[in-house]
Design a protein around this nucleic acid. Structure first.
Lengths: 340, 340
DNA sequence: CTGTTAGCGCATTCAG
DNA sequence: CTGAATGCGCTAACAG
């Protein structure tokens, strides 16, 4: 248990023959220093392999050189990739990433934010939980305390945070248009909770395309579900009970996979019996039994933008565009086909 | 910028009419306290919504109530799920999770560990990087400094850490056996770097099965590759150049996906022209164009075991079994078939 | 059983 | 331009 004692700033000062204040200054990159002393200090730092204690630093500065990222569900590789991208960007800025997972539970989201506040993160990137009627007190707390935060993928309306996201309405619009143009008469959308932005936006595109085709969207064309594999399976059962549609669009590729497997289990063929389309374009989506028609979100660009924004917000810059929209891209594959 | 001042232990003490020392004691759950004062303190804590500053705490105790998890690649949902499982277990113990990603780069692994040490994590769970001839100085540093660590999924030989993992040899053995029994004469294994445990173990099972069938494994039956999608694609090209085998086994399902897509691009049909089998059993593996024959690793159990171990190690318990082996499970699907 | 106090390692005044 | 002193919020050792 004779753990070697940590080397402190004092050791460095002693070795360099200067005071701790001086060491602190060179470590913080002050440029009003004798180059010679600076060098002596740097030599000592290297020789001792000295690294500052982040806790002590944070206690003193009330900052922490860390950015918190709140994610919903790492089971979906979409978010796994996102974490990787954010990590890389944060890293490039010399900051640390703190990760919190909500599993789409608003209570967890609150807890994570509380922890982040306690840890004095310098900013928070939030992927909002897919949750009905969320109580947003924790977001307001952030605003009151002036803690920088931004949203990624979607946002909570009625809050001030800006957001890096894909133009979901546009993606849905293009996809719906394509389905309508290829002869589909009865498209059902497996949506997230319709009151949430990420669903409302998709629905907006869905409806617009219908309108432009002189059609009205009926209530039973929209089915709410949890945005995961089982959500897709259950929603599919519910839909089939009411009669098989032409096509099913879903909120993401994982939900589509649920639909695909459930359809197969029920002896329905895709795309012969019905078309299925997803959202996100996961790497695996093109390799499915029936490769998936889907809409790609530019994960990397969105993530980089969010990181960029959080640093700007943290520096007090005023962001001109509250919403930073990225363009989705439609991929037509074999889970959909032309109908007569 | 008039951010509300943080409420400190002093505020609590004042409100409760006791000293800070007392507050600290009740917060640390000391049981030698007047229940009445304890209650007064707790009331004050709640009333002020007080939470301790983890940095101050850590500075003082040299602990941090956090466990570091080092992962290689969040693009693979296998690890995404793993992070979720570990998170949950750590959470249940009232600890925080710190995440580090290596992208299979040993230098990043070193940096992450250095950061973890600086942050005074109470323990580290390591998923080793897939890297050739790794310099293990950072692991030795951990041992010298007496910092608790355990491995998850595989380990670095020559180090003392214990490991929660699947019996990879057994899984490979069963799979190879099945292929041999179904008439495959020429099975090629797309392996990770053969000198690494995770590959060596799989090869051991591979060879044992061959031996039991009176066969010897030739050098050209083993092809090394990066354990990702592109690794699979490249390895497949290399294999085909030397002549098409009966069957290809891979190190994980993602590599298999690379093989599957590349095969399709080259006009080869699976399983008609050759069989393909993976490892891990990702959720999506059963939904591929040709659903994948694979070996499942019990992620949840392994993760829970690793967390369990790290806490035991941290408490100075001596672990009886350095290697905690979990049983793999073979899933036979449609990417493999009987040959005559 | 409770209150007082001295650090933990660093940043940052303020003199010199 | 450099050095000594103070405090960040908390814990733990020591008195009382």
């Amino acid at each position: 248990m004779a753990t070697k004692e940590r080397t402190t700033i004092r050791d460095v000062a002693a070795l360099a023959g200067v005071s701790v204040g001086t060491v602190s200054m060179v470590l913080n990159g002050s440029n009003k220093l004798n180059p010679e002393t600076r060098q002596r200090v740097m030599d000592a730092v290297i020789k001792l392999d000295y690294r500052r204690n982040p806790h002590a630093r944070s206690l003193s500065t009330k900052k922490s050189m860390t950015i918190g990222l709140i994610i919903t569900d790492l089971t979906n590789p979409f978010f796994g990739i996102m974490v990787g991208c954010v990590q890389q960007e944060i890293d490039a800025k010399g900051y640390e990433l703190l990760l919190g997972m909500t599993k789409n539970d608003i209570e967890r989201e609150k807890k994570v934010i509380a922890k982040f506040i306690d840890s004095a993160v310098d900013g928070i990137i939030i992927v909002p939980a897919h949750y009905r009627n969320p109580n947003l007190s924790h977001i307001y707390a952030l605003e009151q305390r002036n803690i920088p935060y931004v949203y990624l993928t979607t946002y909570y309306p009625g809050t001030r945070g800006c957001c890096a996201m894909t133009d979901l309405a546009q993606g849905s619009y293009e996809l719906t248009n394509y389905l309508l143009n290829t002869g589909h008469k009865n498209i059902v959308m497996i949506s997230g909770y319709v009151e949430l932005v990420l669903s409302a936006e998709r629905l907006r595109g869905f409806k617009r395309a219908h309108e432009e085709h002189g059609l009205e969207v009926r209530a039973d064309q929209i089915v709410e579900a949890e945005p995961d594999y089982n959500g897709g399976r259950e929603a599919f059962d519910q839909i089939i009970r009411r009669g098989k549609p032409d096509a099913i669009m879903t909120v993401n590729d994982i939900v589509s996979m649920g639909v695909l497997t459930r359809a197969r289990e029920m002896g329905l063929r895709v795309p012969e019996d019905l078309s299925v389309a997803g959202y996100d374009d996961l790497l695996y989506s093109s390799m499915l039994e029936t490769s998936l028609t889907t809409v790609r979100q530019p994960i990397k660009e969105m993530s980089a933008a969010a990181v960029d924004m959080i640093f700007k917000v943290a520096e007090g810059e005023t962001i001109e565009n509250k919403l930073m929209m990225f363009t989705p891209q439609l991929f037509i594959r074999s889970s959909t086909k032309k109908r007569l």
